[in-house]
C-alpha cells in the first residue's frame, strides 16, 4: 500500500523513549506501529543499531520467555477437524449397517433366500433406525449430558446426526436394491417412516428404547409372517405406500411439535 508511513525522525525519536517528541506525535506513532508491519521492522532496526539499552532489555525479556514458549505446545497445522456430523462412538454403527446390507445382498444373490422374498427389502426399513439410535442415545454417547446442555443441542443437531446416518445407509441400500432388483420406492418410504417414528417416540421414552420397540414391532408384524408364508407382506407392496407416507408425516409432525424434548434430559433413565 502507498499509505503514509512514519518518518525516520519519528521512528528514531520513539526508539529513544519519545522524550523529544510531542505527546500527540508519540500517540500517533504508537497507533500506527500497532497496525503497520513495515514501520515495526524499521523500529526494530533502529533500536538494534542505535539504542543498545532498549535492545538489551528486549533480549532479556526474550531469554526469559523462550524456555516457557519451548514447553508450550503450539497448534499443529492441518489437523483433521473433529466430527461435526457424527460422534466418534457412533461411527461404527453405520459401518455395521452397511455390513448387514451387504450380507443380506449376498444371501439374496446366492439364492438361499426364502422364495420370492428379498432379504434386502426385509431389513432395509429397520437398519437406519439402529444408526439413529446410536447417534442420539444416552447409553451409547458418553458425552450425552454435555451435548444436551450445549446451546447447539436440540432438533437441528438431532437432524444433522440422523441425516449423516441416512447418508451412509441409504446409498448402501440403494446399491443393494439395484443389484437384487428391488425397487427403491418399495423400501425407501418405510425406511424414512421408521426413522421419523424412532425420533418421535424417542422424544418421549428415549431413542434407544424407541428403536428397540420399533425393531421388535417390525420383526413381529412384517418379518415373521413373511418368512412363515414365503411371500412379501402386503405392507411392503406398492399398495402399502400410502400408509407408510402417512406414518412418515405423522412422525415428522410429532418430532417438530416436541422439538424441545431434545434439549433436556428426559425423565426416562
Amino acid at each position: 500500500m502507498t499509505a503514509e508511513h512514519a518518518s525516520a525522525r519519528l521512528i528514531e525519536g520513539y526508539a529513544r523513549g519519545g522524550t523529544d517528541l510531542a505527546a500527540d506525535e508519540v500517540w500517533a506513532v504508537e497507533a500506527h506501529l500497532e497496525a503497520c508491519r513495515v514501520c515495526r521492522d524499521r523500529l526494530s532496526a533502529t533500536v538494534g543499531a542505535e539504542v543498545p539499552a532498549v535492545a538489551s532489555l528486549v533480549d532479556t525479556v526474550w531469554s526469559g520467555l523462550e524456555p516457557l514458549l519451548a514447553v508450550t505446545a503450539t497448534m499443529p497445522r492441518g489437523r483433521r477437524r473433529p466430527a461435526r456430523w457424527l460422534t466418534p462412538t457412533t461411527a461404527p454403527w453405520p459401518a455395521m449397517v452397511v455390513g448387514v446390507t451387504l450380507s443380506a445382498l449376498l444371501l439374496d444373490l446366492a439364492g438361499t433366500g426364502f422364495g420370492e422374498v428379498s432379504l434386502v427389502l426385509l431389513v432395509a426399513p429397520v437398519l437406519p433406525v439402529l444408526g439413529v439410535a446410536a447417534s442420539w442415545s444416552r447409553g451409547l454417547d458418553p458425552a450425552y449430558e454435555l451435548t444436551v446442555s450445549a446451546p447447539r443441542a436440540g432438533l437441528p443437531l438431532v437432524l444433522r446426526r440422523t441425516a449423516s446416518v441416512l447418508g451412509a445407509v441409504v446409498p448402501a441400500l440403494l446399491a443393494g436394491g439395484w443389484a437384487t432388483g428391488v425397487s427403491a420406492a418399495q423400501w425407501l418410504l418405510p425406511c424414512l417412516a421408521f426413522t421419523a417414528a424412532t425420533l418421535a417416540l424417542g422424544g418421549a421414552v428415549g431413542v434407544t428404547r424407541a428403536a428397540a420397540v420399533l425393531a421388535a414391532v417390525w420383526a413381529a408384524v412384517i418379518v415373521a409372517p413373511t418368512l412363515a408364508t414365503s411371500r412379501t407382506a402386503a405392507a411392503l407392496q406398492t399398495g402399502g405406500l400410502p400408509a407408510w407416507g402417512l406414518l412418515l408425516v405423522l412422525g415428522v409432525g410429532v418430532v417438530i411439535a416436541r422439538r424441545d424434548a431434545y434439549s433436556v434430559l428426559g425423565a426416562h433413565r
Binding site: 450425552y144 449430558e145 454435555l146
Partner: peptide, 16 residues
C-alpha cells in the same frame, strides 16, 4: 442464547 453464557461440568463427565 442463555446456554452460550453457561459453563457446565456434569458429575459423570463422559468424553470421547
Amino acid at each position: 442464547a442463555l446456554r452460550r453464557r453457561i459453563g457446565y461440568l456434569p458429575q459423570e463427565f463422559g468424553y470421547y
